[in-house]
Amino acid sequence: MNNNSIRFLSFLIVITVLTFTGCARKTHLQKAKENITPYGHDMYAVSYGGINVGEVRSIVRLAANQYCQDQGKYMLPIEENRSGLSIDLKFKCDNK
Rank of each mutant, 00 (worst) to 15 (best):
Y67M: 10
S58W: 09
H28F: 02
F11M: 11
V56I: 12
E80N: 09
Y48T: 04
V60I: 14
Y74W: 10
M75F: 08
N95Y: 15
H28N: 05
Q69L: 15
D42I: 05
L62C: 00
G40Q: 03
G50H: 09
G50L: 07
E34S: 12
I59M: 02
I36K: 00
K31R: 10
I78L: 14
S5G: 11
G22H: 06
S47V: 10
A45C: 13
I6P: 03
R25E: 02
V60D: 08
A45Q: 15
G72N: 03
S10P: 00
L18K: 01
K90H: 15
S86M: 08
D94Q: 10
T37D: 00
G72H: 01
C93F: 12
A64S: 13
G49M: 10
T37K: 08
N3E: 14
T21R: 02
D88T: 11
Y74S: 11
S5W: 05
A32H: 07
E79P: 06
V56T: 13
K26E: 12
I15S: 05
D94N: 08
A63G: 02
I13A: 06
I15R: 04
F20S: 03
M43R: 15
E55T: 13
S83Q: 06
M43E: 15
I59V: 13
F8Y: 15
D94F: 05
V17R: 01
G54M: 08
F11A: 11
L29N: 06
L9F: 13
N4C: 07
S83T: 08
I59L: 07
R57S: 14
E79M: 12
T37H: 01
S83K: 06
K26Q: 11
R82H: 10
I51M: 01
L18G: 00
H28D: 07
E80T: 14
R57K: 14
P77E: 05
C68A: 10
G50T: 09
I36N: 00
A32M: 09
M75W: 07
I6M: 12
V53Q: 05
K31S: 05
N81G: 04
K92F: 14
Q71L: 11
I78S: 10
Y74M: 09
R82D: 07
Y74P: 00
K90Q: 15
E79V: 11
I51K: 05
F91Q: 08
V56P: 06
G49R: 13
